[in-house]
């Protein structure tokens, strides 16, 4: 039973991960990542990490992905890079390097002699235990993460609202394109 659920969740996770990097439309990529996160939450449940699974759904699927979808909707079709094709050898080299890492890890795992997991109590990974650890031994990490999130929120406000669009220098390349178009329009007033 567990093996069946594991196989289904793993297949879902890998298929949706592939969909994330293959899809041209960033919106569909984000939806695929949502499926990936749900599959991972299933795997966490199999590993008896209930609280992490719940946090995965709430924090990732609930908060982070909504932020992604908002930005994708805000940017619109400009989020898709036109003519996004790498040269063949670039894709080949990237896949070969990644495949080499995968083979290396698989080989190491195969020889590592990791076999059966430790036996744990039924309330392993319950919010009670995780919260206790967070507020005792790892209280420093807890506070630093809260500080980090605060700084990130300030940074987002500064980045998003800092410069007024009409006073910003246009990107050089696009300014050139625009100037060339104006020149062409002046030469051919009818066009």
């Amino acid at each position: 039973m567990n093996t069946l659920v594991w196989a289904l969740a793993s297949a879902g996770a890998l298929a949706s991960a592939l969909a994330v990097i293959v899809q041209r439309n960033p919106f569909i990529s984000a939806i695929a990542l949502l499926g990936n996160l749900a599959s991972l939450a299933t795997l966490y449940l199999l590993l008896q990490s209930d609280f992490v699974a719940a946090a995965q759904i709430m924090v990732y699927a609930g908060a982070i992905m909504v932020m992604f979808l908002f930005v994708i909707a805000y940017i619109g079709p400009r989020g898709e890079v036109q003519d996004e094709r790498r040269r063949g050898w670039q894709i080949g080299a990237a896949c070969a390097a990644a495949g080499a890492i995968l083979v290396e890890v698989a080989w190491t795992v195969g020889r590592s002699g990791l076999t059966s997991a430790a036996t744990v109590k039924d309330d392993f990974g319950s919010p009670k235990h995780v919260g206790e650890l967070f507020l005792t031994r790892y209280v420093g990490a807890f506070e630093i993460v809260s500080l980090l999130l605060l700084v990130a929120a300030i940074a987002a406000v500064v980045l998003g609202a800092g410069a007024r669009p009409n006073r910003v220098r246009m990107d050089e390349r696009q300014a050139k394109v625009r100037a060339a178009r104006q020149l062409a329009a002046q030469r051919e007033p009818g066009a």
Partner: peptide
């Protein structure tokens, strides 16, 4: 039940897929 090695393999595969995505894709969102 699947042992820890199986999870490590899934994770390694996911990591490599993500790595290829970071290298190959050009849209900053992706």
């Amino acid at each position: 039940t699947p042992d820890v090695g199986n999870y490590l393999l899934v994770s390694a595969a996911m990591f490599t897929i993500g790595l290829v995505g970071v290298i190959v894709r050009r849209s900053p969102l992706v």
